[in-house]
Design a protein around this nucleic acid. Structure first.
Lengths: 122, 122, 122, 122
DNA sequence: GTGGTCTAGACCACC
DNA sequence: GTGGTCTAGACCACA
């Protein structure tokens, strides 16, 4: 995993977890890799990995069974959707629109970019 | 001015400058407020204001006349447009589109939000 | 049995045993359920159940007959009363009183809560 | 400061902060000692102190001004009262009452202990 | 000066 | 085996 300098590593691990859950690769009540496994997987110190786990536990996205490991919460998928949607609608979008106005970028140009990106993916 | 905890204050001041220039409130070769004035205006430590000025000078958006003050660069408006457009197209947009896919938000929903926001503004 | 995350599971099993003995459901010199039975009953790893048994044996609340099982000690009820009373008077109560002072909760409020709880039970 | 082995040190620091706020030694919007000062004061590693600060910030009891320090939240006192009262009423009290019933300790005995403690204090 | 992040490594409780 | 806590020390961004 390659990290971006713009954000703490532990938050990038959190994002990585979010993706796994949103893509339903990790399902509710399923055990997720252990702290040590994640630390090795993404090549960071276990302490850094723990921060990501703890953070997600506070947000009730995952929970812990003592001595066994971490699990996706029963309503973990919903929790993630709620958190990300909120952030997207209240922070990302207003900022994007504000910039579009300032930079004189039209809605049409944006649509075009969207379609082009989707085409490239194929 | 109220600051957002997610971003360094000096960068938020930089954004404030960008807006002034993009809205052509501050025109090329015009003098802009002094470091002290800005510091008082937005209620920050002068050191923090200086960082914003220095940052913009490095990007050649503003320049300095010793003993007189800071001025918007001859091609300051173009510089800002270039910088912001690049950031928007290469970083903001791809991220937005990725999130739309993950969160199952359609292009139509986005257009709607855009129009709603523009209506509210009026 | 549902466990509280704030306390080790084996100690919660110990508390469960204390209740059985205090309520005289398990009487002195009577055989108590086996490690395996307890483990199944409360759905934990047998190792965890063993810890509870060992802990109680060290406190001389229960004793073991090899090949037969565990039994409540002759003076098991007294032992439990002694242990719990001591803990209650020396640790629980002082802490409760300290909190009452800090939180401005009067003795009367506490009495009321006590009576309300007893009423609810009926 | 002397720590108790029954609880993580960082949570004992949290409790220490709670007391300061409840006793109104630290008032809303007032700056509290820096991470390093606290670390020295209670003789722990700064990292351990940071945990306490971070924990309290998540609970919105304190907030942070970048580069300046931590401050008691505007409604920090209320937040603490809410948190502690809730814990006391929902966890401590039921447990205390349950033990009183099991140990055959009467309400009168408790009142007596309360008065005795208050007398000793004088 | 402030706090924030990260690493390395140790020790422990628990399952 | 699991996670949780703590220390020591480094480096960095920010005000």
């Amino acid at each position: 995993m390659d990290f971006d300098n713009s954000k703490p590593i532990y938050l990038q691990i959190v994002d990585f977890f979010y993706e796994k859950i949103l893509e339903e690769e990790w399902k509710p009540n399923e055990r997720i890799p252990s702290v040590r496994e994640v630390a090795m997987m993404v090549e960071v110190n276990p302490n850094t990995a723990i921060r990501a786990f703890t953070h997600l536990q506070e947000l009730e996205v995952i929970y812990n069974k003592r001595g066994i490991g971490y699990f996706v919460a029963e309503d973990g998928l919903e929790a993630v959707l709620r958190i990300k949607r909120k952030a997207f609608l209240e922070q990302t979008l207003p900022d994007v629109f504000k910039q579009m106005n300032l930079l004189n970028i039209s809605l049409e140009a944006l649509e075009e970019a969207y379609k082009r990106m989707n085409d490239e993916k194929k």
